[in-house]
């Protein structure tokens, strides 16, 4: 479940800012999922999906771009990516008087790292 330095994971910029002030940070096995969601007609529908993703304690970060129908989700390893899709597809879209379901498709997944200061958040220990 744990990563280590030099594993070759892609480093991306996750909050908080100013990580550089804290020097070299350990890598943890988090996953960044990129999904495509059909049915995001409006800004508020993107927020609807995002809000519900945030309610899952294993989802670290989520963002839905309604204009491109892309959804980015950072999950910890307790989370199963299929359950993210199920969660999205379980939500109902309301557009005027019509109701429908979102359709979610996993496009890519990649490893990401998280800073040391957050290790307590995930209850992880660094393997040197």
């Amino acid at each position: 479940m744990m990563g280590r330095k030099g594993k070759g994971v892609k480093v991306i910029d996750i909050p908080p800012m100013n990580l550089k002030d804290y020097g070299e940070l350990p890598n943890y096995d988090l996953k960044l999922l990129k999904l495509r969601i059909a049915g995001l007609e409006e800004v508020r529908a993107g927020a609807h999906v995002q809000y519900n993703l945030y309610l899952n304690p294993n989802i670290i970060a989520a963002f839905v771009d309604y204009s491109t129908e892309q959804c980015f989700v950072v999950i910890n390893d307790k989370e199963d990516k299929d359950s993210v899709i199920k969660l999205i597809e379980g939500l109902t879209v309301y557009s005027g008087s019509e109701t429908a379901k979102y359709k979610a498709l996993l496009e890519t997944e990649e490893d990401v790292r998280y800073p040391d200061i957050l290790k307590k958040r995930f209850n992880l220990e660094l393997i040197e």
Binding site: I14, G46, A61, F63, S67
Partner: peptide, 10 residues
């Protein structure tokens, strides 16, 4: 987080 690239839409 730059990876999100968002502008506050949500």
């Amino acid at each position: 987080g730059k990876f999100l690239g968002h502008r506050g839409e949500n």
